[in-house]
């Protein structure tokens, strides 16, 4: 008896798929439960937060927690909008700079010939497994030595080299045919033109992916504010929210904490949903050979 060959990416529904749904659906439901819980807690009025036993879903949703969150800001002396402004500015700068740097390097690494190119790619590939916290101390000493302490650039500069970003972009640029670049050169294009008129438009999915990874990193990272920044007005939104949430086990603060968490999380989700198909497109070229 021979096996019916595996049906990858089936076009239509078949009864044989039911067993996969039976596992995947409950599991994905379970995975998003904590997210649902956060939504629900953020919208709970005070009496529901105190309720015992606690209810999972909110009964009478209110925006009171968000109100409290925005008002609590004023007690630190620095308005919340300042932290938010810092974060948005830093995020935009960081994403732009990472994309420019990874694309130009990825282009050279994929399409140019120069000495040390293979070595550079190998080192970058090894650095994929780089765990930054492992070398937090020398990093601190270097940043301190460079005089970047308490300067807003410390939010951006130390994190700009993203090995994963360069790796994905380089793999994607490999798909761009060399003939296209040769033709452009004959027409008199320089590297700058090639980069902006040919490479960037063609590798947009990879850039979208790098942008998402960069966003997820910088938006959620409070390391720079924690360690390097002293001046309160230079700190970021996530740092501010984490100070609010450091108070443990306080039921009164629970609603506010949930609201803060939700504000941090939603941009990640929304951006990913918009870019999901581009990310998947990039991932099909992500293999390490």
């Amino acid at each position: 008896m021979s096996l019916k060959a595996m049906q990858v990416n089936p076009k239509s529904f078949d009864k044989s798929q039911l067993k996969f749904y039976a596992i995947l659906l409950p599991l994905s439901f379970f995975m998003i439960l904590p997210v649902v819980y956060t939504f629900s807690s953020a919208l709970k009025p005070l009496d529901e937060l105190f309720l015992f036993p606690p209810r999972f879903l909110v009964q009478k949703p209110t925006l009171q927690n968000f109100n409290d969150l925005f008002r609590a800001a004023t007690t630190t002396g620095v308005p919340m909008s300042r932290y938010l402004f810092n974060s948005i500015l830093i995020t935009v700068l960081f994403i732009t700079a990472t994309i420019v740097i990874t694309t130009s390097t990825g282009y050279a690494l994929s399409k140019k010939e120069y000495r040390g190119k293979r070595l550079m790619f190998r080192i970058n590939q090894t650095a994929l497994m780089f765990v930054a916290i492992a070398v937090a101390i020398p990093r601190y000493l270097i940043i301190d030595g460079l005089g970047m302490n308490d300067s807003w650039i410390v939010h951006v500069i130390p994190y700009l080299a993203m090995p994963v970003g360069l790796f994905l972009v380089k793999q994607f640029i490999d798909q761009v045919p060399d003939e296209l670049i040769e033709a452009a050169k004959i027409d008199g294009a320089n590297d700058w033109n090639i980069l902006f008129k040919i490479i960037i438009p063609l590798v947009k999915p990879a850039l979208a992916t790098v942008a998402i990874l960069a966003f997820q990193f910088i938006w959620n990272s409070s390391e720079s504010s924690n360690i390097y920044i002293i001046t309160e007005t230079k700190k970021t939104f996530v740092f501010y929210l984490s100070t609010l949430t450091n108070v443990q086990n306080s039921v009164a603060g629970a609603g506010m904490q949930a609201a803060a968490t939700l504000i941090m999380f939603l941009p990640n989700l929304i951006i990913f949903i918009f870019m999901q198909s581009r990310v998947m497109d990039t991932m099909s070229h992500s293999g390490i050979k």
Partner: peptide
């Protein structure tokens, strides 16, 4: 990979969501 593209998109989104919630969450 064994199911259709549409449901696959939503289920993979649900599975991926926890990885982007961030340390604060």
């Amino acid at each position: 990979s064994q199911i259709q593209a549409k449901p696959r998109k939503y289920i993979s989104l649900a599975l991926y969501t926890p990885s982007m919630v961030g340390p604060l969450f």
